[in-house]
Design a protein around this nucleic acid. Sequence first.
DNA 1: AATTGCATTGTAATCGATTACATAAACTAT
DNA 2: ATAGTTTATGTAATCGATTACAATGCAATT
Lengths: 328, 328
Amino acid sequence: MTIKDIAKLCQTSVATVSRVINNDQNVADSTRKKVLAVIEEHNFVPNSTGRNLRTQKSDKILVLLPTMANQFYSRILHGIEAKAEEAGINILVAVTNLEKSTELKYLDMLHMKQVDGCISFFNTLEPEKITELAQKFPFVQCCEPTLGADVSSVVVDNRQAIYDVCTDFIKKGHKRIAMISGDYYKYSEQSRERGYREALIDNGLKFDDDLVVKSFYRYKDGAKATKTLMSIENPPTAIICVSDALAIGAVKELQSLGKQVGKDISVIGFDNTSITSFFSPTLSSVAQPRFDLGQEAFNLLYDKLQNNETPNKKVILSHTIIHRESTM
Amino acid sequence: MTIKDIAKLCQTSVATVSRVINNDQNVADSTRKKVLAVIEEHNFVPNSTGRNLRTQKSDKILVLLPTMANQFYSRILHGIEAKAEEAGINILVAVTNLEKSTELKYLDMLHMKQVDGCISFFNTLEPEKITELAQKFPFVQCCEPTLGADVSSVVVDNRQAIYDVCTDFIKKGHKRIAMISGDYYKYSEQSRERGYREALIDNGLKFDDDLVVKSFYRYKDGAKATKTLMSIENPPTAIICVSDALAIGAVKELQSLGKQVGKDISVIGFDNTSITSFFSPTLSSVAQPRFDLGQEAFNLLYDKLQNNETPNKKVILSHTIIHRESTM
DNA sequence: AATTGCATTGTAATCGATTACATAAACTAT
DNA sequence: ATAGTTTATGTAATCGATTACAATGCAATT
């Protein structure tokens, strides 16, 4: 069932049918009614491959995620969805699993005009490549911008967040503060580590290599990292984790070492995923305004969709530090 | 940059370029080399909108999820990805948020030939509509088949799983066993409730309406449902939850009521998501073979992609009941 | 009655690929 | 040398839409 068939059934031309579909005003009311009736009757949906080819757009955007195994993205996606809905734009999600080849495969959808733009949550591509991509296509990075790339992005001030967390720990009397970071998300990890280090130094403490562990992002990785941290000569009394999952792993390990988290030792996570209030002890965390991040990312992208010459913007949204039992 | 431009640069016809791209053997080696060189030099990627229009296929499939806020789907997706990769098929994910209009919007991608098939994890559509859809397009339901629809699907035996869980509780001496179920996922909820009810009856216990609460699927919903359950005259000594999130909410609520979970009262979840071993107490759960579910779903779909006349299959994979501290 | 203007509608080109068919060139067999 | 094959390439139709432009019919104006 194509537009041709509909035209035949209506005894009119494809042009007229197309006009009706696209709500062109130059169609007689009587004709419009007839055509709409036939379309309705046959449940006709115009083939968007044909349409895309002709119009060179798809009314779709790609959301590129590093993984689905993280609650974190779900709420951001809602933010994107909310705005995209208003704009009549559909969202397709693809998962890279942190693999460059997969990333490239899906980014090709931009070249192929299968999507009109992309909001990406992680890229392995070099800064120059990202700059180039963003020049050619509407492209926005969310949460994890590529350092040195000229591209629109929206983030929270990761450095400041951890700087504040760490300073707060120091104020509370902690002298040995550890950090469980990662080795995958360059931007966020580096800025958080920098915040950590600067807070130490600004408050007259020494930065100790042994207190920073690089880890993957699962619960068990947090546990393992904590085991390492607690086995050193002068173990930490506070642990800053770059994700809630790591923090949960950390708490679990500490508990099995007989520590009382929140009393003997403090632990804080990042992202404030919903588990934080249901875990025991409840978990302190740095909250990102996830819904807003999504909305803002879409806004940035939408500007580019209207006109890709729109200058790039770097938007920073504010975070909140939420203290719960694990840092009492 | 289109195939035409490449042809011009090579001083050959578009047909020849197309042949090279599609690895047709009827091309002289010298020509092939020349064309490949130009393609390489210009980083040419054939526009797949044009290609799709002509070939009427996309080498893409749609994975339709009800939500991203559930770890559960992530591992299944890996199973799908593993097989799809082998087959050279790309995966696009769309999230319905349980909304029918959104579901329909994305299913239209099948009509529009933007994807060649779909693996769906949730449908609100009526059985007849699903049957019709599955007749027209390669379509597979995973975990949550539509009751009464003629369609390929892969699931675990939800009824049996809960039947076993419940029977086990009874054997351990529990007389008041509650269930926190939901009101969204018809198939799984109904079969699990049936398993629960049948186990009670087969073991000479009475089914008590007050012991079944319908709930949404977040942590806090589990807590709320538990509050209700514990406030009735003769409260339960065991709670079966249809998801791990509900179980976590339940445990949290029980703890705040001063109960020792695993001792005073038993709680079991469903899906065996990774948090189960990191929660305190560790959570018992019914494990589904998630990776295999994904792989099998893809296999079923792939058969249909080859030939959509392939008869529908209903595949049942086996579950495992994992006991941890919460049921000790 | 002729001219003009406007509202509708149709014709055909176009988007970027694939592919059936035609054709030309080169090679083989007699 | 000739007819028949094989190989390589090109021409043009096609997929399903949109849209510039042309054409038509009708009413209003002169």
